[in-house]
């Protein structure tokens, strides 16, 4: 049974984008802060810090999760992936390229989180329609695009042939 004292730093180990990583964290340190400040993985953005905005969304064991609603000590031994994992050696992956093509981003603050949620949706529901895509996007606040570019990008890589522009 793991017991961690308050106010002291404890070693946390997990896999980040396929690489074993470790760092020290107080129990109260949010995973979002651990990723950025301890590990220097700045792809994950921090917005509201209470689970509403979606900017800090990453994947844990293949599911999109808010990294601001997890303590770093909770993810001991887990497999995490962040936006840094998406691009291939050849460049942007299909979803990222579609976001670029359809102007699915402007400032880019919300983009990493959106990509992580859409990545799960694509794996689980490759034929998701526009309504389903919009439903998933409702968990992400984007103040630049008005969402249309993001929806178009998603429809480009999801199976909905009728929704294509």
């Amino acid at each position: 049974m793991r017991y961690l004292e308050a106010g002291k730093r404890h070693t946390v180990r997990f896999t980040l984008n396929g690489r074993a990583v470790e760092g020290d964290a107080e129990p109260r340190l949010l995973l979002s802060d651990f990723l950025r400040q301890t590990l220097g993985a700045f792809g994950t953005h921090v917005g509201c810090e209470h689970g509403s905005c979606g900017a800090c969304t990453i994947q844990m064991d293949g599911k999109a999760v808010r990294s601001c609603l997890l303590y770093a000590v909770q993810v001991e031994g887990k497999a995490l992936t962040t936006v840094e994992n998406l691009a291939t050696p050849d460049g942007l992956n299909e979803l990222q390229a579609a976001m670029q093509k359809h102007h699915g981003l402007q400032c880019g603050f919300c983009t990493p989180g959106i990509l992580m949620s859409l990545t799960q949706l694509r794996e689980e529901e490759p034929n998701a329609d526009e309504a389903r895509i919009r439903d998933v996007l409702s968990g992400h606040i984007c103040r630049c695009t008005g969402y249309d570019g993001i929806v178009k990008a998603a429809l480009d890589v999801f199976g909905d042939v009728f929704g294509k522009n």
Binding site: M1, R2, Y3, L4, A6, P27, R28, H50
Partner: peptide, 17 residues
């Protein structure tokens, strides 16, 4: 927004929890 300090326990049985 950062949480206050707390002790953390991760038991592996209901009895311990």
């Amino acid at each position: 927004m950062k949480p206050p300090a707390f002790e953390y326990l991760a038991p592996v049985s209901l009895e311990a929890a």
